[in-house]
Design a binder for these strands. Sequence first.
DNA 1: TATTCTATCTATAAACT
DNA 2: TAGTTTATAGATAGAAT
Lengths: 227, 227
Amino acid sequence: MTRRKVKLAFIVNESARKTTYRKRKNGMVKKANELATLCGVEACMIIYSPYDTEPEVWPSSMGVQSTLVRFRQMPEMEQCKKMMNQMSFTRERIQKISEQVKKMRRNNREKELAQIMYHYLSSGIFLQNMTMNDLHDLSWLIGQNLRDISRRMEALEMEPQNEVQIQSQGQEQAGEDNNNGKGIMEMNISTLQRQQNFMELMNCAGDETLPFGEANLCNAWSSPFYF
Amino acid sequence: MTRRKVKLAFIVNESARKTTYRKRKNGMVKKANELATLCGVEACMIIYSPYDTEPEVWPSSMGVQSTLVRFRQMPEMEQCKKMMNQMSFTRERIQKISEQVKKMRRNNREKELAQIMYHYLSSGIFLQNMTMNDLHDLSWLIGQNLRDISRRMEALEMEPQNEVQIQSQGQEQAGEDNNNGKGIMEMNISTLQRQQNFMELMNCAGDETLPFGEANLCNAWSSPFYF
DNA sequence: TATTCTATCTATAAACT
DNA sequence: TAGTTTATAGATAGAAT
């Protein structure tokens, strides 16, 4: 799976399939050897391919025989417990990947909303054509940020010796960010006020219940008309 | 095998071994599934670990059973043909890796000699403390380069319409390389003359027989005294 | 057809949660 | 203990030989 992410499906092209078979078979034998060596487990592997009349076997004849004997000696029930067929395996993989997708979607949405929030904070211009859903989630994100800020401010008040240090850091930052000499506290206050305006605008400032849903943020960013 | 290249040996640490086992077992099952899907081959895998009372099996019970039946039905001789035990597998791997090492050594030596050659060409200063072996191989390399150059010059004479183009390219290059306006043909000629001097110095210019051996180029480059 | 090369994708050791 | 993250080692698809 390289140069191009290959689709997990039967390879129609004869020679390509054979090439892939040989490469991957060797890879698996190597892996089996590593697993047995590193973890000291008993394992065996049998592969029938249309390319050879004899099966490809690992590790040795003796190894396979003893593993098989041990396997046959178990009660049928025991044998089956850990068995995994292709369907259940595939189902599990699909579920796992679906969860990843969901997570990434949530992540993307959160970042998208954060971008909109920062845009508003820096420009004061409010993005148009957002749905109620978008506004709702955005208000949740803003609430989160407000709570974080409050928490940090309280922490600073508790430990006043830190305040000076933080303040001076803030001034450096302000300089870098072209904030014309405003200290960070000042910045935060005007930020807070603007956020408050925003919240009032949407009158749902107190809502706690909103993690991000599946909805995409329409085309607020891709449209040339807004801002 | 990442963050640190792990040594292929039994993992002593209990928990590390278990972690590695689970990860790699999952990896192998995934690989087995891919091999079966991509290449349409019949395969099975059985792993006994001290971490479970039941064996880990792939693909399904039925799949294993049918593969085993098929395996048992073969004459013993056939069964064994493709079998690979850990020792023969390891021996093969060692041989393969040894060949790689050899190849890389040759490659390194060729590069080292080329560096010396270019150093002489650009500075006219001759590297001291080389062995007869080094000089011999170096002369071979220089001979190769001379032959390449001759071949290219002949090709250019055959197709004179290319000459102008190449010439102008050469001038650009010369500018970049701080050769003070010399064209590439001029460069090549003085290069050739200097190489010829070199060859005469060692009087073995015509020797064709020398691919690089195993010898390392002593410490000609690492010593601070030379150049 | 098989082997080699290499750019890219995948597996995973170690750290972190 | 098991899951997640991240940087690096390893596997490999496609092309070249």
